[in-house]
Design a protein around this nucleic acid. Sequence first.
DNA 1: ATAGTTATATTAAACGTTTAACCCAAAAGG
DNA 2: CCTTTTGGGTTAAACGTTTAATATAACTAT
Lengths: 345, 345
Amino acid sequence: MRKITIKDVARNAGVSIAAVSYVLNGKENKVSQDTIVRIHDSIKELNYIPSITARGLVKNTSELIGVIIPQTEDHKQLVFENPFYSEMISAIEAVVREDGYHIILAGVDKGKTYLDISTSRNLDGAIIMGIYSEQLYEECKQANIPIVLIDSYVHDNEFTNVGIDDELGGYMATKHLIDNGHRNIGLVTGMIRKDGVVEKRFLGYKRALQEAGLFYNPDYVFENSVSYVHGRSSGALIAEKHPEMTGVFATADMVAFGLIRGIKEAGKEVPKDISVIGFDDISMAHMFLPPLTTVKQQIFLKGETAAKLLIDQIRKKRGAKAHGKRTHVPLEIVERETVRNLRGD
Amino acid sequence: MRKITIKDVARNAGVSIAAVSYVLNGKENKVSQDTIVRIHDSIKELNYIPSITARGLVKNTSELIGVIIPQTEDHKQLVFENPFYSEMISAIEAVVREDGYHIILAGVDKGKTYLDISTSRNLDGAIIMGIYSEQLYEECKQANIPIVLIDSYVHDNEFTNVGIDDELGGYMATKHLIDNGHRNIGLVTGMIRKDGVVEKRFLGYKRALQEAGLFYNPDYVFENSVSYVHGRSSGALIAEKHPEMTGVFATADMVAFGLIRGIKEAGKEVPKDISVIGFDDISMAHMFLPPLTTVKQQIFLKGETAAKLLIDQIRKKRGAKAHGKRTHVPLEIVERETVRNLRGD
DNA sequence: ATAGTTATATTAAACGTTTAACCCAAAAGG
DNA sequence: CCTTTTGGGTTAAACGTTTAATATAACTAT
């Protein structure tokens, strides 16, 4: 069964190819009412579906949005088990779908660079999550398609960027602990890299301490990967070696989960002995036992916002390259059951 | 900066377009060693990246794999927050990437049917997850591209299908409870639909009961959505109204999490008063407190297997349509801390 | 009646590839 | 020395669209 093309429709309707194309593209002022219906009938009758590929060739589009995701160390796999990303992708998909776009998921690695993907596939736009390297930056400029960055702090005045105010988030978390009477507050976190999101959160942590007249103790920060295992081992450590520490801020919910486990395993209780506050409010946070107190970022909204901004940019035909718009999605503490109020005692 | 094409490379190297195309496609016997290097040099020099779109037009390919995902009721959003899917997608992406494919994520809805997507985008293949309707089935046949179904029981002799032996899984879970001395065993589950995965698990549950000489009590099955909330309310119900029930099988880990919470809220303890066993072993299962005993299915392996089978099918040039190969990924009980051994008492 | 519009149609070039068909010179076979 | 093969090359058609350019007939306004 041959694939049926615009040509078949034209023949069937007894008109030229161009006529069909015009009605397909809504340029109906070029075609008489009469033929419009004839063409529509033929389309229905033949079950014609236009080839996006062919159209793409001439219009230089693909109706495809690239979503670039961080990868595991070995570059073999998308870091996808983190529900964080899936939720965002879900949001992105939902909004771009309305405009007929599809998303294509990719990690970038040695073989296929971002630029490769972008140009070989003729992407209409891209959303880049979390990762950022100088090389990627150069490629983005070269590719010259609308791009929005999510959660990036470097070169954020070149590209549209959506994220959260991480410094504020770190501040809020720490402040929450302080407000509840905690004075010796630990930080369990991923690697603190210059211009990374965790650096900002770290900065917020320090600011809150300072503001409260507490002094910053480097021994109180446990810096490693943002992972459950890191949380768990830190929890054990804290419970055993730091009896004076009553509160700890984990810069990601996954870390907080590990932390709580580690603490319990060391024979202490959350929040009775040690309070913990997380960050992100992934959907698991409210299901966890005990339900996790955390800094909620509206992940879905973040994805949605990014997608909308991208679509806007695409619409205005790669015109204004939207320099350095940084959008912050609001943050909020959601109190559940992992921080104890020491003041009430 | 104009996009540079094969034409530019040809001109730069002083050869014909065809020559360039030949070396691009590895048909090197058509070109002399000498010109091969000249062409390669030009490619490097000009930074040429071939257009997959253009190639697709003539070769009738896209180097794109469709991944079709279930959607929420309102068809607005992919049911993606379930980490289950993301893990599988991650696996799929990893394997197809090796062959230069990218995946495109889509839900199907009224507007864009599967067939639309498949033919307009010229998909090279598709993986369809979990959903199945008669309409989709017809479309799949029409689209006539390699397809593999994941976790589907209907028409599984028409298409390649990878999944698990759900009946066995249900049996294993229930048997595990029985082996630990439980006799009044509940089932908390999503809707039991003909030929759905949960129906099979339900069947396994019944078989295990029967085999152990326990009688099946319809009042013991709590059938609703596969969700945390359903688990939670069922947990409350069970704790309050069924003091005789000592074990319950939740057909998904998410449900089990809710269940445990509901039970605790009703003042009982897991596993002391009530044991629960889950299904899936999503990564959260081992992080949960208490760590969840569950039937582990190797989600990553499942995705991987599906992707490999698909690639195979694509390779053999839509030849053998691989009728009805059903592949089962192995299942295994992972014992953690939510089922209590009543025998030991 | 003439020129200018307007509405509707068609033709053909272009998009960037692949690949069958063709070409030619040099080598090989007789 | 003539024919065939082979290696290395090019030409041009094709893939399925879009769209500028062009054509034609029917109106309109003068």
